[in-house]
Design a protein around this nucleic acid. Structure first.
Ligand SMILES: [Mn+2]
Ligand SMILES: [Mn+2]
Ligand SMILES: [Zn+2]
Ligand SMILES: [Zn+2]
Lengths: 140, 140
DNA sequence: GCCTAAATGCAATATTATTGCAATTAGCTA
DNA sequence: TAGCTAATTGCAATAATATTGCATTTAGGC
């Protein structure tokens, strides 16, 4: 819900502004990764006009609060679908249809952290995206 | 060695051109991730002038042959340091000093593939970057 | 040395992202 | 509810990153 996210913003001392609500509504409603300019176009089509700088700033804020994520392999943004689930949030992305699914797994993270630790590296965050075929596309 | 990589290019039917050697020399020599324009600047300082389009095209080629990789979290490029090692190549990147280390681990890949498979996803490639502290920076 | 497919350079253009500053607004307080 | 103020937004300029089509050059085979 947009409402929930807005409450989180406010709880952190950020204002619940109209532009922020609009950007979040788009991310929530569309469900797939969008570039800042995609978001601007979608809003324009709805008769709402936002400066792209505002959109960038809003996305930065949402990402900093883990309410959204930047998908690095495409440079686009999605709403986080895992709410308050701890640990690093990852994506599986179908290279055929573009479907994206977010997941988290503590054990996987732990194994990666341990592996890195053995090499002397202290991990604070994982970026991790799987590319492949979703079940639908695979069965074709 | 630049020589080895050039041989791989040729083995695939690509020409061993001067621009390609120059770009590869820079990646090899500098050792840390560089943007296409960084590479252009470095070459310019050495009295060599390459069009940025050529650099982009060379980097695309090198990446397609896994002789280099794009580090997605920064958008920069590094020479592959794992030569012919199978499986997906990952990075650990120190957020303090920028040191980058490439690694591969079959078991980690297998566990990730299995995990995704359980969710119905058939993985073809992992993209994965760890962010944290290298041993040097950690001990400070 | 010649030939040709492959690669490069160039110019234009598109896309993505950031900055400083003036104008506006959300949320607090009286 | 009106007024206040820090936070936020819009605007304009600019930077950084990336792609395209086409004319020119070049590597590598003959
Ligand atoms: Mn998430
Ligand atoms: Mn590699
Ligand atoms: Zn699919
Ligand atoms: Zn370090």
């Amino acid at each position: 819900m947009v409402q929930d996210s807005i409450r989180i913003l406010q709880a952190q001392g950020y204002k619940a502004t109209k532009p922020r609500k609009l950007v979040f509504e788009v991310l929530e409603g569309i469900g797939r990764p969008l570039s800042p300019y995609d978001i601007q176009d979608i809003l324009r089509a709805r008769g709402k006009h936002l400066n792209h700088v505002t959109i960038y700033r809003t996305l930065d804020l949402l990402c900093s609060l883990n309410l959204a994520h930047k998908v690095l392999s495409s440079g686009r943004f999605v709403k986080c679908s895992l709410a308050a689930i701890e640990g690093c949030h990852r994506f599986m992305i179908c290279q055929q249809c573009g479907a994206i699914r977010e997941f988290a797994d503590k054990q996987l993270c732990q194994e990666e952290n341990d592996f890195a630790r053995n090499l002397g590296f202290h991990t604070e965050h994982h970026f991790s995206e799987f590319s492949g075929l979703c079940s639908q596309c695979y069965s074709k």
